[in-house]
Design a protein around this nucleic acid. Structure first.
Length: 596
RNA sequence: GCGCCCUUAGCUCAGUCGGAUAGAGCGACAGCCUUCUAAGCUGUGGGUCGGGGGUUCGAAUCCCUCAGGGCGCGCCA
């Protein structure tokens, strides 16, 4: 059972008071009542907007209502003082003992402090990364991987039953192109007399994926199959002779490499789903039949896009899905003019499959270049699920990689792109993950290699890790001095915390008690970056308190001849370490014990 | 041409379903190490929140409009 959030407790107190003050108040207005932290300590510990949101319906002046509410709230057991303020806020000052009591609660709960019942165990599927298995992961994949992973952790913390999923796009033309490229490396391993230009001319659409990473695949094919994939008479052999074999081997090799890269990043999906397997199972035809039976398909011809007609545009009859009935701008093709299925059809089948597996809610994390695709898939899932909101997309905007003040051109063919592995080798997993989470995902982001690589000391991740290391250091010193029993959470949870009174200590406590509501708000908004900023602020509060001890020996955490104060401060330090560790856990960043 | 995202301090970015005097880091300037890790702390300076209009008790936040940047726009995945 999650520990009740102190803000939720006070909000319940406010609502109960309103019930006696304004019986029968509008429930919609009551839902807008908030109890939130004050921006300035001088305003108190918490503030409520209750009088402001209810004044209109009650036909009362906000300030008057606030005064009445404040008077009534003053009697609540948690509240030391309640005062009307500003246009109609009520500022609440809590008894310090109530605030300090949260420290004990944190110590008893450990890292489960901040877990929430918000999600109510609803099964949620978070699909992210899903890089095409055509080469190593590069920086462009990184943001979605980190954001998706942190979001999954965050939702789990908020009480959802989360499954992390990776969709393998192994059914389209891209993997055939990969197979051709792998086959070229196979021929090279066979010492083919064919030159690259001559081979290129044989490949439908031209030879792609010329990077070195397929050489090993070609050699492995040679080792396993000898020259049996080549044909004596034809050079190269027709694809019917080798395509399926080479494609399977190449995709398997790419997925193995991607899983290694993901592991380096600390990403470990629960489920990998193969598009090819899905198509092979007949799921696509089944979902098309299902939509057809619902009267949502028709044969039709689309209008050309306005203002920018493709040069080779000609009207063609296709099977179209009535996406406009579900909020999209135009109806969308499920079958190409030659009768084969579009990628969209496969994607509908995939999302139908996720719904069929029992997920009540689907979240996809996509790159911004897929932004134009959101409306149609939302329409499709809405049609399938028969309800609104079963599916949402978190879009990650482009990461511009900068080096020496210049954008790095990303080209697979030229080999100038930065691989995920390179990046992690240079700056480390923790810095990559934290940096990717210090921006809203829907804002474009500049990833400055020089700043993160060369000046890594200034990266915010170290600031937060340092706070944790310092807290752990204090606990280690205390343990060395007085034994393990003195720093055990159970013992500290029972400590008399009355000596925690300074402004820096109380500021830290106020920050810590905001952790549960931060988790809930971030989860509800699908914004894991809020956790990174919370941790930064928490670290700042802790570093400030630390330095109080440098300036004034009486403010040090460990004072041998003052055991009560020391225990109280150890409790605060231990609670801080727990919340930092917990937050870093959401982000997938290591809570280091020491910085050396 | 249309759709979606973005525009906040010199730079990179936060800003809690609209809330009180808009914040942080970097950079600049001035200070703090015989003491639990100075990868830290304290102070100073720096903003017509892209422009304009509207909604309201209240707008960086919501709506309209204009400007600028990004992504995308039938049979690619």
């Amino acid at each position: 059972m999650p520990h009740p959030d102190l803000f939720a407790t006070l909000r319940a107190r406010v609502l109960a008071t309103l019930e006696s003050l304004l019986p029968g108040a509008d429930t919609a207005a009551l839902a807008r009542v908030e109890v939130s932290p004050t921006r300035e300590e001088a305003h108190g510990d918490m503030a409520t907007n209750a009088a402001l949101v209810l004044a209109r319906e009650a036909k009362r002046k906000p300030a008057e209502l606030a005064a009445e509410l404040a008077a009534a709230l003053a009697a609540a057991p948690e509240i030391a003082a309640a005062a009307p303020a500003g246009p109609g806020f009520v500022n609440l000052r809590l008894h310090p003992a109530v605030l300090r009591g949260e420290i004990s609660a944190i110590l008893r709960a450990g890292e489960s402090y901040g877990e929430s019942g918000l999600g109510a165990g609803i099964p949620v599927n978070v699909e992210y990364v899903s890089a095409n298995p055509t080469g190593p992961m590069h920086v462009g994949h990184c943001r979605g991987a980190v954001v998706g992973d942190a979001l999954a952790n965050l939702l789990a913390r908020a009480g959802y039953a989360v499954t992390k999923e990776y969709y393998i796009n192994d059914a389209g033309a891209q993997v055939d192109a990969l197979a051709w490229a792998a086959y070229w490396r196979y021929l090279q391993a066979l010492d083919t007399p064919l030159d690259e230009a001559a081979f290129d001319a044989q490949v439908p659409g031209g030879l792609q994926y010329r990077g070195d990473y397929l050489i090993a695949v070609g050699e492995a094919l040679l080792a396993r199959h000898g020259d049996r994939l080549a044909a004596p008479g034809a050079m190269p052999a027709g694809p019917a002779h080798w395509l399926a074999t080479v494609r399977a081997a190449a995709v398997a090799a790419m997925m193995a490499a991607i899983r290694e890269d993901l592991a380096l990043l600390g990403v470990d999906p629960d489920v990998f789903t193969s598009e090819r397997a899905l198509v092979g199972s007949g799921a696509v035809d089944a979902v098309i039949a299902r939509l057809g039976a619902a009267g949502l398909l028709y044969e039709g011809v689309l209008e050309p896009p306005k203002g920018r007609t493709p040069e080779d545009w000609e009207p063609r009859a296709q099977t179209l899905f009535r996406a406009t009935q579900f909020g999209d701008d135009v109806d969308r093709p499920l079958r190409k003019s030659d009768g084969s299925n579009t990628y969209f059809a496969n994607d509908i089948a995939y999302h139908a499959d996720k719904l069929d597996r029992g997920f009540a809610h689907l979240i996809d994390v996509w790159g911004a270049d897929h932004g134009g695709y959101v409306a149609r898939l939302k329409a499709a899932v809405k049609a399938l699920a028969g309800r609104e909101g079963a599916f949402e997309v978190v879009l990650c905007q482009i990461v511009r990689v900068m080096r020496a003040g210049q954008p790095v051109k990303m080209s697979k063919r030229a080999g100038t792109y930065v691989t995920l592995r390179d990046l992690i080798d240079e700056v480390g997993r923790d810095a990559v993950r934290f940096t990717m989470l210090t921006r809203k995902s829907d804002a474009q982001m500049e990833f400055d290699l020089d700043a993160v690589m060369a000046q890594s000391r200034e990266n915010p991740v170290f600031y937060v890790q340092y706070a944790h290391a310092r807290a752990r250091s204090v606990l280690r010193h205390a343990e060395a001095e007085w034994g393990a029993a003195a720093v055990a959470a159970a013992a500290l949870a029972g400590a008399d915390l009355g000596s925690l009174q300074s402004d820096a200590e109380m500021a830290l406590i106020r920050r810590l008690i905001a952790w549960p509501r931060t988790v809930e708000a971030a989860a509800a908004a699908r914004e894991p970056h809020r956790i990174a900023f919370f941790l930064y602020d928490l670290a700042a509060d802790f570093h400030m308190l630390w330095n109080r001890g440098r300036e004034d020996a009486r403010m040090r955490f460990l004072i041998a001849d003052r055991p009560e104060e020391t225990s109280a401060r150890l409790a605060l330090v231990a609670a801080t370490a727990i919340v930092v560790r917990s937050g870093l856990g959401v982000l997938g960043v290591t809570p280091v014990e020491e910085m050396r």
